[in-house]
């Protein structure tokens, strides 16, 4: 018998009586009086920055020192002035090793944990999100939910594909519990929440 069949057989033989799946909808999950304010607070608590952008994006980006200083900039958001890498021409993700700044669009933000839903639609190279030294995430102000339960009702998970909750910059506390921002991935993460109309 194959390993697969043997394992499945053993699990069937061992299985307890059927237990029903609980109704997750019954959970009265936490909601906030001001979802945008809570989201902004959460982003800061997870080590990021949150900026509410009323007008155009570029001045808000330019106000980020790391963006201003960046030489190699990748953007998956159209119209970013400093973007100078054509991702469609990149065949090997290793070529993105020296990216200084990356601008990514997010489809949804979660107030309870500051997480942004970022989808790799396959057109771009997802390595840029992790190799970049600094990151900005652009999120529409009306794409905010209170908690993860609501979030999973709203998102579509790409398959085949890749998507993630990104909550602040890369971090570690593996040396004596001291929080250090910038372990392997982005050293900073700015979430730009744009006006709803844009």
């Amino acid at each position: 018998m194959s390993a697969r069949d043997e394992i499945l057989k053993a699990l069937r033989a061992a299985a307890p009586q059927a237990v029903p799946l609980p109704d997750i909808g019954r959970v009265s999950a936490v909601r906030y009086p001001d979802v945008r304010e809570r989201f902004a607070k959460s982003v800061v608590e997870v080590g990021g920055c949150c900026v509410l952008v009323e007008g155009p994006l570029e001045p808000a980006l330019a106000a980020i020192p790391e963006y201003a200083a960046a030489r190699k900039v990748v953007s998956l958001v159209p119209g970013v002035a400093k973007a100078n890498v054509d991702l469609s021409s990149i065949r090997d993700p290793h070529d993105l090793r020296d990216v200084d700044f990356c601008v990514l669009p997010a489809e949804l933000g979660v107030a309870e944990n500051g997480a942004c839903w970022i989808v790799d639609h396959g057109g771009a190279n997802r390595a840029c999100a992790f190799l970049t030294q600094h990151l900005a995430v652009v999120l529409r102000g009306d794409c905010l939910v209170h908690n993860l339960h609501e979030a999973y009702q709203r998102i579509a998970i790409p398959s085949p594909g890749f998507a993630m909750w990104l909550s602040g910059p890369s971090k570690t506390a593996d040396i004596e519990q001291a929080l250090v921002i910038g372990a392997h991935g982005a050293r900073s993460c700015t979430v730009l929440v744009t006006a709803q109309a844009s």
Binding site: I24, V27, S42, E45, V46, G47, V110, E112, N113, G114, A115, N147, L148, H149, A151, Y152, Q153, I155, I157, P158, S159, P160, G161, F162, A163, M164, W165, L166, S167, G168, P169, S170, K171, A173, G185
Partner: peptide, 29 residues
């Protein structure tokens, strides 16, 4: 996926007191 919400809300808070880990990656293929 909806069940993920329950576990992701529990996991990082129980582990390190964070509301969620910095990266929660969904790999399909």
């Amino acid at each position: 996926p909806p069940e993920l919400a329950v576990f992701l809300r529990l996991l990082a808070r129980s582990a390190t007191g964070q509301p969620i880990t910095a990266y929660t990656s969904h790999f399909h293929g």
